[in-house]
Structures are given as C-alpha cells and as structure tokens.
Design a binder for these strands. Structure first.
Length: 271
DNA sequence: CCCGATTCCTGTAGGC
DNA sequence: TGCCTACAGGAATCGG
C-alpha cells in the first residue's frame, strides 16, 4: 500500500529517468479508476516534455511544459519503468511511452488509483487544495497537531490519517508512529497533551524517514519504479504483529479495529 | 462543523 | 478442487 515513503521511493527512482524526456504516446486500456481518466488525456500528453517529478502527500506530480499529471496509486497501484515492454498483463491499465522503447507502465488491480491532469498550478486542484502540511516539511510540528486535535473526540489514529491535518500517513505508519510515541491509537485526540503531540510529530518524522531509507514497506505487492520491493516491513514494530511480543516490554501486541481499520498496539507501552 | 459509515475494487485466505 | 465469504484499505462523500 503506497503511503508517503513508498511514493517517495518511486519518485526518487523514476525522476532521473524521466526528467527531460518527451512523452511520445499514452496508451490507456482501462479508464475507470477512482475517477475516470480524462477523455482527452492521450491528446493532452502527446509530445509533452517532462520537466519535473514531485510528490505531494501520496500524489505523484509530473510537471510538463503545459500542465501537470496527477498520479495517485491508491492501495494497489504500481509504476514500473520498462526498457522494452512485453505484452501488457492483466491490470496493466496505462502505458506512457517515452523516447524510443522506454515505457512507464501503470498496474493497479484494485483500481483505487487516479490519473488526472491540470493545466493550473497543481496546488489549486480540488484534490490538493485542502491538503495539510508535509510531515517532513517545516510546516509540520507537534504544536500544529495539537491545534488540530484539541477539543476533538475522534481517535488520535484517525486524526493523523486525516490528509487535512497531515498528508501521507496511512494505516501502517500511523500504527508505528503511535507505538513510538507511546500513545494508544484509540485515545480521543482531545485528551492528548501538547507535550505528547510533540513526541508524536517526532515519531511520525522518524518512522517515515526510516521507511524511506529502507525503500518503503512491501507487505504483499509494493514495488518501486524498477520492480524492487522495500525492506521496511522487517522493521515494523507493531503493524501486523497481533499476539506477538512487544519489542519494548515483551508484553503482547493487541489488535483492535478503529474506524473499520486494522490497528495494533501494546497496552503496556501505549496509553 | 464534526464524526462515523459507506463506497469504489479485486486478490487472497480461510472454512467447508 | 472448488465455491463461498470475509477482509484488506485511501480517501471522497454521505447522513445524522
């Protein structure tokens, strides 16, 4: 499931190969993703020059000479750079043909991803306009989290997974960050002190940076732009470790559902 | 405004 | 072996 570290890993891997190249042709085999791929995207992208590859939250932003491609990988999407593409497999929905035989191929079994276009500054696009700060940027802090969470009853885990509060933190890293910070994931956001919010903000930064260093987390099918898995899965402290010993106190990691989502925590270390 | 439930989708795993 | 069901989840949207 691509969260911020996985998208950043893809971005870093692809950028050197894409920058300065021209899109020869876009081949779309399935337009129905989270939102339909725009009807005229083939025409809009033909002959466009790729000038930059950015990330905003979990969105990959491909800047061209006439506008920006917004790419979201949903939960099962992958982008692979292929030097000589073979015949498309099932769920290979889009091929972006670059100079020569180079091909950027989008694969997404569950089709929760999106491929959109804007000619305007991307930050004004409806999907990006209301996004909160980047967790690894200077606008994000424990104080910012505290302000977003005070007087609110929702679970702290849901607060940090809300893209309007902070972007890029999905289910896996929310669980990990709350373990590092020693906060129960189901604790009402309004009951967390400013001091503990500072710890939490630090924990989010730590876990995301560690995951980026490891090339992301491959639970089942995540691969980077060159088809390589990430290795942070071996370093997960609580996620998916129900009934296993806590790495800190040897107590037992407990699974709970929070807002229909799988959550894991150590009842002794997290309060 | 706030917050929980619902929705999209398909591969995988577990029960029988 | 095959059929069925439950489950996984990012994030917009709906309903109370």
């Amino acid at each position: 499931m691509p969260e911020l570290p996985e998208v950043e890993t893809i971005r870093r891997g692809l950028a050197p190969h894409l920058l300065g190249r021209r899109i020869q042709q876009l081949i779309i085999r399935q337009r129905r993703l989270r939102w339909p791929i725009p009807d005229n995207l083939e025409a809009l992208l033909a002959d466009r020059l790729i000038q930059d590859l950015h990330r905003r939250g979990k969105y990959l932003l491909m800047t061209t000479d006439q506008g920006t491609v917004l790419w979201h990988l949903g939960m099962s999407g992958s982008l692979r750079l292929l030097t000589r593409p073979g015949p498309p497999m099932k769920h290979d929905h889009v091929d972006m043909m670059l100079d020569g035989t180079l091909c950027l191929r989008y694969h997404d079994p569950r089709r929760f991803g999106a491929l959109l276009w804007t000619a305007d500054p991307p930050q004004t696009h409806p999907l990006l306009r209301n996004l909160g700060p980047e967790p690894l940027g200077i606008d994000f802090s424990g104080d910012a989290l505290y302000l977003a969470g005070k007087d609110r009853s929702l679970a702290i885990k849901n607060l940090i997974m809300d893209g309007r509060v902070v972007v890029g933190v999905g289910n896996i890293y929310a669980n990990e960050a709350l373990f590092i910070a020693g906060i129960r994931p189901d604790r009402p956001a309004g009951t967390v002190s400013r001091h503990r919010y500072r710890h939490l903000a630090d924990a989010i930064k730590v876990v995301l940076n560690q995951a980026i260093e490891q090339g992301g987390t491959t639970l089942r099918d995540f691969v980077d732009g060159h088809g390589q898995p990430g290795y942070f899965g071996q370093k997960l402290r609580v996620y998916g470790r129900a009934d296993q010993p806590c790495l800190r106190c040897q107590g037992t990691i407990r699974p709970i559902k929070i807002g229909q989502r799988a959550s894991y925590f150590c009842p002794r270390c997290q309060r």
